[in-house]
Computed example of a mutant assay.
Amino acid sequence: MIESPPILTIRRNFPRPTAAQVDAFRDVPTAFVCDAMGGQGAMASSIRAIGDGRDITCRAVGPALVADNGPAEILASLAALEISQPGDIIIAAMHGHRNVASADDLFCGMMKNKGIAGFVTDSEMRDYTAIVEVGLPVWCTGLNPNSPNGTGPGRVGFEASVGGRCVSSGDMIIADENGVVVVPFAQIDTVIEAVARVVEMEAELEAKVKGGVDSLLDLEEMIADGRAVIVD
């Protein structure tokens, strides 16, 4: 190359969901959000609440701020903290690289001081006991004491593939003990409307189950109209 590229590329002015849009997902389980999106939306199950949620109540809702670090790198995450807004969820993309910590208790403490709602990474973390003391909701792929690099290059405020999902800065993140769900920015209002219907249907079905219902299929009707066949 003729010139060395910058070690950081930062986009600060990406579209963000409104406070009302964030609040619409505040108490909604991730499973309901996935149902509202045709059964999809969750990151891979390898990204889970730290310690499987034993010692920290892991629940967070807010806009994604994507830090595309690359393998074993954290420079973009450090820069994301600098431009973050209270309520953001920092998404630290390390391209699925393992055997290195993407963050520790001190970085979690700084994120909490800044008002960050949660931290999600497709890599590992370290200093579990101290992270528990900080109390920041965290989702990661496990624990590892190895140190990352902070030399770049990195991109902040753009998009990255994390846990099998393309996440853009400004997308809605809903995360709980079951996993991390991504709602694309352009679909937020549509999903909010669909979630309301899912909540109603879940409440109706729950009432039926408590009332003694023990099946979801009308097997006799399915046999009668040919959708099911008995072969023995």
Rank of each mutant, 00 (worst) to 15 (best):
K210T: 03
V132A: 10
P63A: 13
M37H: 00
G96N: 08
I116W: 08
S46F: 02
D68W: 02
I74M: 07
F14H: 12
T190H: 09
A31E: 08
V120A: 12
Y128P: 15
A175P: 15
A60N: 07
V181L: 04
R48W: 01
V209L: 15
G109H: 04
R98M: 10
I230N: 13
I174M: 00
D218R: 13
W139L: 09
A194R: 01
V22M: 11
V182S: 14
C166A: 08
I56W: 04
C166L: 12
C108M: 05
H95E: 13
I47E: 09
D104A: 07
S168W: 02
N146K: 03
N178Y: 09
H95R: 14
M1P: 15
D88H: 06
M94K: 13
S84W: 03
A67I: 01
I74V: 10
D189M: 03
A60T: 05
H95F: 05
N149F: 03
V191P: 14
V138L: 07
A79R: 13
D35T: 03
V180N: 07
H97K: 14
C108V: 00
E159G: 12
V134Q: 11
G170C: 10
A80I: 01
T9I: 03
R227W: 05
I7W: 04
L65N: 14
G51T: 01
V100Q: 12
G157Y: 04
N178V: 01
G179R: 06
A207I: 01
G39L: 02
G87R: 06
V182W: 02
A31D: 11
R11W: 01
V162T: 03
M94F: 06
E82T: 10
M125W: 05
D176G: 13
E133A: 15
A64P: 13
M94P: 05
D122G: 10
S161N: 12
P86H: 10
A117D: 10
R12T: 04
N144E: 05
G109S: 07
I47C: 10
E124T: 11
A175R: 08
E200G: 11
A203P: 12
M172D: 15
D35M: 09
L217G: 13
L8H: 12
R59C: 07
M222I: 00
A101Q: 07
F107Q: 12
D105I: 00
D27T: 05
A207R: 14
N99L: 04
S123H: 10
Y128I: 04
I50E: 11
I188W: 08
C34S: 09
I192R: 09
